[in-house]
Design a protein around this nucleic acid. Structure first.
Lengths: 329, 329
DNA sequence: CTGTTAGCGCCTTCAG
DNA sequence: CTGAAGGCGCTAACAG
């Protein structure tokens, strides 16, 4: 393995000088620089990142913790992160919890040991244990997808108003009996805020919501199927529209409707969240909310990079959304 | 930051002894071990990975190069990789080429500089430039998704026979005019082998294939839509079945059929590859090939770990598949 | 403009 | 069973 020492000897200078041309720091004569660069070129030498990290305490690595990589939202976020980070010479160390909440804490610790320069946490909860851990970490952390206390950086979406808008759309279309397929409220963004937006908008329009219309599901297609079954079998007063907090839940719900010959949107309108790629190819195409996940990833990267370079950047970001009105309503 | 030196002092031993208990190497008296462990516990000390790497030349990091993270196949592979690797104390450094082939080479080099212990390349081509680079790398590399020369480790799928089986199924169902939506043959697995399987099976059954029936698409849903349009508008003799080399292409094709009131499977049967999650929720549900992508990831990890620990493990793996016969044929 | 010196935190002979 | 010493490859004062 060729090291800085070899380069120095071959170029007839000291290691310091080599280091200087490597890092573009301090003064180096044009002559010396040329010689060093030539040798570096010839040997295709590249400095050891580990030795550098040991010395500088910087690693140019960002840890990314995510709940799953099998779902569109986190994948898009990581794509956005990757773009922005790689452009700036940073790389991603991936930590996949596979939806195991305990692993979030574990990985936070692991990434600290790895001395990553920063961490992006694609969060599904905002428990205080997690937030406390983050604060003790002493590494810049950005949370994506959840709004948290003011002293932690985050980038999230305006879930509350998205839900209100979507509900409002259905009401405008003449629906007054609207069902809701949600998820656990521990997920503040997806579980709590989307539900609150729905309920508030219903209330603001003077509409009531029967308890049976509100179902709690988990994050998969089958659960949406099951939830729709519950709504239709248990509700005394059958709703004419349903909002599901993710497109996958909406897809599950649609499959139940179709199996039972219930027309969409005539007998049951339906809408989701997330603008999944499939949503436009469904029959009928699904009305949904488009969050710009890739941009969220890019913003998170920018926040982190700004922090690492001691620059100013907005530390709390709430991104907007687009309502994609399609044939399912 | 607490270092091995601090621990040594606090425990009243030398750094060497601390190192020994840390790595479970050499002899340490029960007494000394206890003291050291106690101090480590109290200080929640953890050794610096960088210092360790500098010394040992091992990093416990595996680089993963993939074409995109937004598609199910690579996501599943990474999930499988992650499981197996994290269980063995390895972590993943992610390199996303975003389908830019030039970046494969670039990242290979970058990962070498990072001194990763091994590399998994989820490959979409087998160009010699790539393979040559891999051989000069001097780091264990596993290729996933392509079959390559015998001196490189790989795990891939039996694309050829999968395609033959699928074609055979359609023929058994009475189809003799079968169209094919493929991709560029530079992707040997998806582009070349699946096409060859199709053609060989047709030939073996004495069936001919009109040139217009064979379309070349790219990896997205719209391209499948477009390909189906081409097939139906250009073919003199209209086929009664279509095989698409990915589920996404099949979904695009289905959407074209539906827009044009062409019944599936009555007027046009259709089948895909990949067992995407959506495939079972489509109307009609899509006949497809289930490759066990997560297992492929796990196998790749095992190959790499075996190599790193100088153990024996099969270096060339071709996984089988399951044919999921559903309503679209 | 350049080189010397001194570590960063760890592991690994080599002597006890 | 334990410790001293050296060095992995690099950067950062500091002194020319």
């Amino acid at each position: 393995m060729v090291t800085i020492k070899d380069i120095a000897e071959m170029a007839g200078v000291s290691r310091t000088t080599v280091s200087r041309v490597l890092n573009n720091s301090g003064y180096v004569s044009e002559d010396a620089r040329k010689r060093v660069e030539k040798v570096i070129e010839e040997t295709s030498y590249a400095p050891s990142e580990h030795a550098k990290s040991l010395r500088t305490k910087k690693t140019k690595v960002i840890g990314v913790i995510l709940p799953t990589i099998q779902t569109e939202t986190p994948s898009r976020i990581v794509t956005g992160l990757g773009k922005e980070l790689s452009e700036n010479g940073y790389q991603i160390l991936l930590a996949n919890t596979n939806l195991d909440k305990a692993k979030e804490l574990e990985y936070l610790e692991l990434l600290r040991l790895r001395q990553v320069d920063g961490i992006v946490l694609i969060a599904t909860n905002t428990e205080s244990e997690l937030l406390d851990k983050i604060k003790t970490l002493n590494i810049p952390v950005v949370i994506v997808g959840q709004e948290v206390e003011e002293d932690i950086m985050y980038v999230t979406y305006d879930d509350y108003h998205a839900a209100r808008d979507l509900t409002s759309l259905l009401i405008q279309r003449g629906h007054s009996k609207i069902a809701f397929i949600g998820v656990d409220e521990a997920d503040r963004s997806v579980g709590y805020l989307r539900k609150k937006g729905f309920l508030d908008e219903m209330k603001a329009s003077g509409l009531t919501v029967e308890p049976e219309w509100v179902q709690k599901a988990i994050f998969n297609i089958n659960s949406g199927h099951h939830a729709m079954e519950n709504i239709l079998s248990k509700a005394v007063d059958t709703p004419t529209a349903t909002i599901a907090v993710t497109d996958r839940l909406a897809i599950g719900a649609m499959s139940y409707l179709r199996e039972n010959g219930i027309g969409i949107p005539d007998q049951m309108a339906i809408a989701g969240f997330g603008a999944s790629e499939m949503s436009q190819y469904l029959i009928p195409s699904l009305t949904t909310i488009d969050y710009q996940n890739e941009m969220a990833g890019e913003e998170a990267a920018k926040q982190l990079l700004a922090k690492l370079h001691s620059k100013k950047y907005q530390e709390q970001i709430i991104l907007s959304y687009r309502l994609l009105v399609r044939d399912s309503v």
